[in-house]
Simulated scan of single mutants.
Amino acid sequence: MGAGRLMAVLVTALLAGCAPATAAAGGATAVPTARRAPEGSYTVGVRTLSLDPRSARPLPVTVWYPAAPGGVAAGRFPLVIYSHGLGSRPDLHAGLTTRWAAAGFVVAAPAYPHTRQGAPHFTRADVRNQPADAWRLIRHLGRLDTDPDDPLAGHLALDSIAAAGHSAGGFTTTGMFSEGHPARLRAGIVIAGGGLPGSFAGPVAPMLFVHGTADPVVPVAVGQAAYRRTPGPAVFLSLLGQDHGAYLTPGHPGFAPVLAATTDFLRWALYDDAAARARLEADAGTPTLIRYESRPAR
């Protein structure tokens, strides 16, 4: 499927919206780091930021982080940028993002100006502009990391960044992997999404795809087409008979394996945790629920 066809799918097939079902509530490998993957889990803190509130593209951001009494836990933590789908917002994905933070990641989730729930000028076509918003957020977080008055100062491992997202946020995620993107963007997780035109250029990075085989909004074939285009090592989890995002709901049968696989993928890609990489197929659980595919870099 060509880039133009993929964009057409994005603009037309997403008409039903991209909020999760819970909206009411090998060659190249991961680049090693000097950090050891955490054992156990952290309590989780949360804060909100507001980037450029008076601009044409204001960007409210929710940040979840490993916490300790008095603030952020000691150490530097890899960064995950999480992008929501059409008509959604960051807090609707907290079931997943808070658990990533508990595992030792800082997760920053922007509420995009023209696709978030309640956007005053909602437009699906603005998804193509969202990768630039995500990079704007990364630059802002870099400034906070050097600001002695900010609680995040000295706690962000900005050489170890992943992008992740659901539905239109998955398309946003792939759009960040365009020509010239910095090598510090080391991994991507695409949930019920696909590739934007220009995706998968520049430094190769591991990619994890998660997609329901009965997704009525973004057909699984769109995710598979993006998976086949990725130049780096890639994993595809097909959730058999599942829809556009019910498996992101804690307590759903698909949630635990998706959480385990995405967390171990991040541990491998951002902490160079080889044991986590070895667990990925087992994380997917029973083959009657999830079909696991993987391939090395080309």
Rank of each mutant, 00 (worst) to 15 (best):
R186K: 09
A163I: 13
T172S: 03
A225W: 10
S88P: 06
A214M: 05
Y247N: 05
V190S: 10
A164C: 04
I189C: 10
G193A: 14
P78L: 14
R54S: 15
L141K: 00
L92N: 14
A234Q: 07
D272F: 14
I191T: 11
V80N: 04
T22A: 15
T288G: 08
P182G: 10
R291T: 03
F236C: 08
T12P: 02
A275Q: 02
G245N: 02
S238W: 11
P231W: 13
L156H: 03
T249F: 08
R291A: 15
G2S: 14
A157G: 10
P206T: 04
T97I: 05
Q224A: 14
S294T: 13
A132P: 01
L96W: 02
V106F: 00
S167P: 01
A192Y: 12
D150T: 03
M207D: 07
P58N: 05
D133A: 13
A56S: 11
D149K: 13
D147T: 07
H114C: 09
M1D: 10
D273P: 10
A284S: 09
A73Y: 09
F200Y: 14
R57Y: 14
E281P: 05
L248I: 00
A153S: 11
G170M: 10
R35K: 11
A8R: 06
A30R: 01
I191K: 04
G75A: 07
R57T: 11
A284K: 05
E281Y: 11
L196E: 09
G223A: 04
L259E: 04
L92F: 12
G70D: 09
V31Q: 12
I189K: 07
G17C: 10
V46C: 12
P216R: 05
A162V: 05
V210M: 10
A192K: 08
R143I: 01
P231K: 15
R228E: 15
G71T: 02
A275D: 13
S55N: 03
A205C: 02
F236M: 07
T22R: 14
G118F: 08
G95W: 13
L96H: 02
A163L: 15
V46F: 10
A94I: 06
P32A: 12
W64P: 00
Q117D: 10
A8V: 03
P257V: 11
D145Y: 00
A74T: 06
L280S: 07
H252C: 05
A269G: 02
T98G: 07
P58L: 08
A278I: 09
L158Q: 00
R291C: 09
L240M: 06
S55W: 08
